[in-house]
Simulated scan of single mutants.
Amino acid sequence: MLLSLKAGGVGLNLTAASHVFLMDPAWNPATEEQCIDRCHRLGQKRNVFVTKFIVKDSVEENMVKIQKQKQDLVEKAFGSTNIDRKASRINDIKALMEL
């Protein structure tokens, strides 16, 4: 199934998928993460592989630099990485469901 970032980021659980190919970067790195999270959900039984295509010396490459700057700013402001926040959310959900 091919989805745009806009379509892949809204309310879908694609746990049957195991590969994510990002063809168009977004200004906001959270948009891409949300799209990836649609495949990497509770109930996913396989590893999820993410491949990001970026054209060298292009606007896309500059967008990735901007994403990195935004991620660095969030890490400095909140003192945690995205992986730490995801693990924390999963633990919170498990605690709510008493798993």
Results as ranks from 00 to 15, higher is better:
Phe78Trp: 10
Leu96Phe: 14
Ala7Pro: 08
Glu33Gln: 15
Leu2His: 13
Lys45Glu: 13
Ile66Pro: 00
Phe53Gly: 07
Lys76Ser: 13
Ser4Val: 05
Ile90His: 13
Val48Thr: 01
Lys45Met: 11
Met63Thr: 12
Asn62Cys: 09
Lys52Leu: 06
Leu42Glu: 06
Phe78Ile: 13
Gln34Gly: 13
Gly11Tyr: 04
Leu99Ser: 10
Arg85Trp: 08
Pro25Lys: 03
Asp24Gly: 03
Ser80Asp: 06
Leu2Val: 13
Lys6Ile: 03
Ala16Met: 09
Lys76Phe: 08
Gln67Leu: 01
Ser88Arg: 10
Glu75Trp: 05
Gly8Arg: 01
Arg46Leu: 13
Glu32Val: 06
Val50His: 07
Asn28Cys: 04
Arg38His: 05
Ile83Arg: 14
Thr15Asn: 07
Lys6Thr: 11
Val55Arg: 10
Lys45Leu: 14
Gly43Leu: 05
Asn13Glu: 04
Gly79Met: 05
Lys65Pro: 03
Asn13Met: 09
Glu75Val: 05
Ile36Gly: 01
Arg89Trp: 09
Ile93His: 08
Asp57Asn: 08
Pro25Gly: 04
Gln34Tyr: 04
Asn62Thr: 08
Asn13Val: 07
Val10Glu: 10
Leu14Asp: 00
Val59Lys: 10
Val59Gly: 07
Cys35Met: 06
Ile54Gly: 12
Gln69Ser: 10
Lys68Asp: 15
Thr51Ile: 02
Ile66Phe: 09
Thr81Leu: 04
Leu14Phe: 06
Val64Phe: 06
Ala17Leu: 13
Ile66Arg: 05
Thr81Tyr: 05
Gln71Leu: 13
Thr31Tyr: 08
Glu32Thr: 14
Ala7Leu: 06
Arg41Phe: 02
Ala30Asp: 05
Asp84Ala: 12
Asn82Ala: 13
Gly8Pro: 03
Leu99Gln: 10
Val64Arg: 02
Val64Asp: 02
Ile54Gln: 08
Lys56Pro: 06
Ile83Lys: 14
Glu75Pro: 00
Ala26Gln: 11
Lys68Val: 12
Val20Met: 00
Ala26Ile: 01
Ala17Tyr: 05
Gly11Arg: 03
Lys94Met: 14
Leu96Met: 10
